[in-house]
């Protein structure tokens, strides 16, 4: 590829190649604080390629096709101005389809005193926004998209990629944050407006440190405040649904999730706004930590 960049996010390493300079420049700016990868000394875990739909489309009506080690053959091409998003989606896709060292949970995660709060929920539940806000309020952000559960130790490993903020969450989660940590506003993406937030210096510096899972939170945004304990069986089902590689890991994945739900209490939390959810999380954490 004409342009490329090496990146390490948590335990995973990536080579991002692109036919255009723009997406690589945007990534290089936002990932400047992350450890670089020297391709001469290390083969990255995954390659993502941002390539034209057809060779001549590098210049005319440029459209990005996301390719790489793991691909979705029928993925729709993306506009060149969304190149940063395409790179992020490509990295997520490699993790979701290719990562085997941990149980990959579609969950956000924050840490305090060596203990992790794992937050899982459907798109729109607010897990990214909540993790981003907690990451600026005394917690270490471990990741807004994936939590990596180690079958051997039961610990959770961080994957603190750029936080992907959507629509109304953008203003809420970027309030008071310096412009250098905020990416360009991408309008009209398949998920509406998107802006990326760079995790703070502590989150990046400590991204290799795992944490012991202490609480599993299942939030739902847009409801009156309420919370209820979630039984082990229900938590197990929710985690298998939230994992992209549970079936591929076989017995190791089964053992890891059984251990997780037996040792980590789970709470379903409904909330109407960010002030409510922040207060509720601190109160619930006070009960378990």
């Amino acid at each position: 590829m004409r342009h490329q960049l090496g990146l390490a996010v948590g335990p995973a390493t990536f080579r991002i190649g692109s036919a255009w300079r723009g997406p690589i420049d945007a990534l290089a700016r936002l990932y400047a604080a992350y450890p670089p990868i020297d391709f001469a000394r290390r083969v990255p875990d995954f390659t993502v390629r941002l390539q034209p739909v057809q060779p001549w489309r590098r210049f005319i009506r440029s459209s990005i096709f996301i390719a790489g080690d793991h691909m979705l053959p029928d993925a729709a091409p993306m506009a060149l101005e969304h190149g940063l998003l395409a790179a992020e989606m490509g990295m997520n896709l490699q993790m979701a389809l290719g990562w085997r060292r941990h149980v990959l949970l579609h969950a956000s995660c924050v840490e305090k005193d060596g203990k992790a709060l794992v937050i899982t929920g459907e798109s729109g539940s607010g897990k990214s926004t909540l993790a981003a806000m907690l990451g600026e309020r005394g917690w270490r952000l471990m990741g807004d998209e994936f939590a990596l559960l180690d079958p051997a130790s039961g610990m959770v490993f961080a994957f603190p990629r750029l936080v992907s903020l959507k629509n109304e969450a953008i203003d809420i989660a970027t309030a008071g944050i310096t412009p250098e940590r905020i990416g360009p506003r991408l309008e009209g993406t398949p998920k509406g407006a998107i802006r990326h937030l760079v995790p703070n210096a502590e989150a990046i510096a400590r991204m290799a440190e795992p944490a012991v899972p202490r609480l599993l939170l299942l939030p739902r945004y847009g409801f009156a405040e309420a919370h209820r304990p979630v039984e082990q069986g229900e938590a197990f089902v929710r985690l298998t649904e939230a994992s992209t590689n549970y079936i591929a890991l076989g017995e190791a994945g089964f053992g890891a999730l059984v251990r997780f739900v037996r040792t980590v209490p789970a709470v379903a939390l409904d909330y109407p706004d960010s002030a409510t959810v922040l207060a509720a999380v601190e109160a619930l954490w006070g009960e378990v930590a």
């Binding site: 039984e231 082990q232 069986g233 017995e251 089964f254 059984v258 739900v261 037996r262």
Partner: peptide, 11 residues
């Protein structure tokens, strides 16, 4: 078969 009790149900 590995059977693990998870509260009211078995995995």
């Amino acid at each position: 078969i590995i059977v693990e009790r998870l509260g009211a149900i078995d995995a």
